[in-house]
Simulated assay, not measured.
Amino acid sequence: MQEPLIQQACDWLEGQQQAMVDCLAALVNIDSNSYDKAGNDEVADLITQWLEQDGITVIRHQRPDSGDILEAQLGEAGQGHALLMGHRDTVFPTGTVAGRGYSQKENLGFGPGVADMKSGLVMNCFVLRALSRLPNCPLPVRALFTADEEIGSPDGRPFIEAAAEGARAVLNVEPGRVSGNVVTGRKGGAGFLINVTGKAAHSGVSHADGASAIETLARKIIKLHALTDYEAGITTNVGTVTGGVSRNTVAPSASAQLDVRFVTTAQRDQLYLAIEAIIAEPDIPGTLATIEQTSEFFPLEERMSSALFALYQSQAKAIGFAVDGEFTGGCSDAGWTASLGVPTLCGLGPVGAKMHTDEEYCLLDTLVPRTQALTATLLNLQHISADPR
């Protein structure tokens, strides 16, 4: 047990409330949309400055088109390390901060990305700073600050998987649920672009000569939506449809965007096969459909988080707050690490709500206790099995 170290770290964190709020305001007041490399790199500059002031090693992986990847290290990197994760990007367009920067009303902090997930970034920084003040840390800790989670981590995923190799546990500081719970399970999901080509014809003069791409797409949408199984947790949704050239022309082209969600990797594999079969069906002679995967997240299956959650729950109780686990349909980078067989827990950040909206907020009084609980969990990770599968 690590009670003296936990007490020392928690005592230091107890006095950091205002410092954490100040750091949160600084990060929120930087636009960092997923496609805004300059903004994401500015956030990285601040995080690097804060960590290096305490002698924490920060490695910056320069990226040509995305925000740079930051990797902080405490102790010797190697087998059995703990990995903290968080993303710097937000869904809000560049320029949002100018009209709606950080603001505060009593215990609520507002602003673009205040909960998802700049408060989590602050939390990881202060976990590292607390651990760096200890006379010894019982295990190496790495922290990854990526910049493209909101668009599926196309650039960040290889760094996440590399950082998780050999890890004892992964702790992802996505926002805590509005209930105060952490996330013990998440759906996986994927996006697809469907394109259909057909043959144009005048809809009054030579209708029979045409082959409607829109009709083919419509028939496929009905079949795709029929794959939804609420009881199993599988959903399919065509969210956008475009096509045709005019009202009186048989449509020579059509396209749609498909979103799918699933609970397990086995469901994923079966669902993908079913989608491919639907797209391959001829439907209307003279039309051809193709499908391209545009994004993907793996699920966080609850069996991968159960032991880690039990440890976190006990540490939270010792700190002074009760917490339960919760399943959510949203995706996160936690799925990548869980799919590798590494125990993973998500939603460990400060409590927030209304993410991705103008009303997004963070409960500021959860900054310190949630950081203390995460720090205490890290200091007791010797109780976690390396592979719970």
Rank of each mutant, 00 (worst) to 15 (best):
P140V: 10
G109S: 14
K105T: 14
V122M: 09
L131Q: 06
G101P: 09
G95E: 04
K118P: 12
T146R: 00
L134M: 08
D116Q: 12
F126K: 01
S132V: 07
A143F: 03
Y102L: 02
K118L: 14
R133N: 09
L121S: 06
N107I: 11
P138Q: 06
Q104T: 08
L108S: 11
P138Y: 04
L144M: 08
V141C: 10
A143G: 05
G86M: 01
L108Y: 14
M123C: 13
G99W: 08
A98Y: 05
C125F: 00
R142T: 06
R100T: 07
G120S: 12
V91N: 13
L84W: 02
G120A: 11
V91D: 11
N124V: 00
H87N: 15
R133D: 05
V141T: 11
L131V: 07
V91W: 07
L84G: 02
V97Y: 10
F145D: 08
T90F: 06
K105M: 09
T146C: 12
G99N: 14
S119I: 03
P112T: 03
S132T: 12
N107S: 14
L84F: 03
L84R: 00
N107Q: 14
D116T: 08
M85L: 15
L144R: 00
V97R: 01
K118S: 12
L128I: 10
T96R: 06
G113Q: 11
V122K: 03
T96H: 10
G99V: 08
P93S: 13
Q104L: 08
L139C: 14
M85V: 13
K105W: 03
N136D: 08
D89L: 08
A98P: 06
G95N: 11
N107L: 10
L108T: 11
V127Q: 04
E106P: 01
L144Q: 03
L139H: 11
K105H: 12
K105C: 09
F110A: 01
A143T: 04
R142Q: 15
M117G: 01
D116C: 11
R133L: 04
T94K: 14
T94C: 09
L84K: 00
F145A: 04
A130K: 05
L144V: 14
R133P: 01
T146D: 13
